[in-house]
């Protein structure tokens, strides 16, 4: 039975999970330089220890309403292939181990916009984690 270590973060009322292998670091919000004429959910770029890193507002990416940054707001720096991107989330909550057997396909009730970005769901006790499909999240739409 394979174990999967995931980082759990909060977005609106739900908890999402990303495998730790895909996470580089978790940062506090810092000055973001806006980049013109890019999709709205791309907030801009930050200076991450000398590396210019693009930042995505995950709320907007999922079509949720924008929220003001709070003390809990975090930027999760994820790496996929040769891309490094920061995801703005409401809070980073936890690191948990889940077994891959416990992953269920996404329930059909999840609304269409977000369903695309989901690999599956995991239920542990009373908590429900939504496993994020990073590839889909980071795929830039053409046009």
């Amino acid at each position: 039975m394979a174990e999967l270590k995931v980082i759990v973060f909060q977005l609106k009322d739900e908890e999402y999970a990303i495998p730790v292998q895909q996470v580089r670091s978790i940062e506090k919000i810092q000055h973001i330089t806006r980049v013109p004429r890019v999709p709205k959910y791309v907030k801009g770029v930050i200076n991450l220890r000398g590396v210019v890193t693009p930042i995505i507002d995950l709320r907007m990416r999922f079509g949720l309403e924008e929220a003001a940054f709070s003390d809990h707001t975090r930027v999760i720096i994820v790496a996929l292939d040769d891309m490094e991107v920061g995801l703005i989330v409401d809070a980073a909550n936890d690191v948990v181990d889940i077994s891959t057997d416990a992953i269920e396909p996404p329930p059909e009730v999840v609304d269409a916009t977000t369903a695309d970005y989901i690999n599956g769901v995991v239920k542990i006790g009373k908590r429900l984690f939504i496993l994020l499909n990073l590839e889909k999240v980071l795929k830039t739409e053409k046009g």
Binding site: H31, T33, P36, V38, V45, N47, V52, M83
Partner: peptide, 21 residues
């Protein structure tokens, strides 16, 4: 970075003395 590949009229970025981009 590789995520933002073709931004109109922007050829890149730099980090200023105050740490901002």
């Amino acid at each position: 970075g590789n995520y933002l590949t073709s931004v109109f009229a922007i050829s890149g970025a730099t980090i200023l003395g105050d740490g901002q981009v």
